[in-house]
């Protein structure tokens, strides 16, 4: 079976400063792969690189067996790999409905804009209530739901999320994680970047990044049982 996403030997530099060194992993259809790591470990660089926002200096990225290197971010999104960037980056001066419609793609046989938006409202009823409100006036949890909803507009096969729990109250974080779980159960694979180790509850597999390299990789239980993760992320 071809992997949904395959990353091989990926390295990223910012003007001589190495952010990622030789990172490899793959995501299978329908799984939840978690990337754990401290601030500055290279997690965001990794997602931005897969999403086409940053060019790697070495390595290969492929989606469904086809190389994604050199594609524009929009082209990568159109191949079913959606990226929800760090920090709930909604478009503050557009309404909830307009935020969602920005990422809608007209495709032969695809859903119409109203259908696609209604599907998102079905998943996030709060967004339906606030459809005409400007996104900048939503609460943090609502903005995160909107950012995730925007990523789901074109029914991606893989949803990449950059720290969806960042800056949210624990109770809201739990809501977001449970929504992510339903999304995964609907068959969409997740690539979840987190510092919050409770994200491991969602995970099938994952890896830990430290200083831009893979420090540890394995199944959820492997990660949870490792002394490193227990000490650094679970506070045990």
């Amino acid at each position: 079976m071809t992997a949904l996403l395959e990353v091989r030997g990926l390295s990223v530099s910012y003007g001589g400063l190495r952010a990622l060194k030789d990172v490899s992993f793959s995501v299978a259809p329908g799984e939840c792969f978690v990337l754990l790591g401290a601030n500055g470990a290279g997690k965001t660089s990794l997602l931005r690189c897969i999403g086409g926002l940053v060019r790697p200096v070495a390595g290969a990225i492929s989606g469904n067996g086809l190389s994604l290197l050199g594609l524009r971010p929009s082209a990568i999104a159109h191949r079913g790999i959606a990226h929800v960037p760090e920090g709930r980056r909604v478009f503050p001066h557009l309404s909830v409905f307009e935020n969602l419609s920005v990422s809608w793609l007209r495709r032969p046989g695809g859903p119409t804009l109203p259908d696609a938006v209604e599907r998102i409202y079905g998943m996030f009823p709060r967004l339906a209530e606030r459809r005409h409100q400007l996104a900048g006036t939503l609460s943090g949890g609502e903005q995160q739901a909107l950012a995730i909803g925007r990523g789901l507009m074109n029914s991606p096969s893989l949803l990449m999320l950059d720290e969806p729990s960042l800056g949210l109250a624990p109770v809201i974080t739990r809501q977001v994680f449970s929504q992510l779980n339903s999304i995964r159960e609907s068959g969409i694979a997740l690539l979840l970047v987190e510092q919050n180790a409770s994200s491991l509850d969602l995970a099938t597999r994952g890896l830990v990044l430290a200083n831009g390299s893979v420090a540890l990789a394995g199944s959820r239980d492997n990660l949870r049982d490792s002394a490193f993760v227990r000490r650094a992320y679970l506070g045990l």
Partner: peptide, 26 residues
């Protein structure tokens, strides 16, 4: 309120998020 106008405003508000949402920024 048009598709083009919404994309322009998305690019203005957040270029990276627009690109990640599938908007061809260029």
């Amino acid at each position: 309120r048009s598709r083009l106008g919404l994309r322009l405003q998305a690019v203005r508000d957040d270029e990276d998020a627009a690109a990640a949402s599938g908007v061809d920024v260029f």
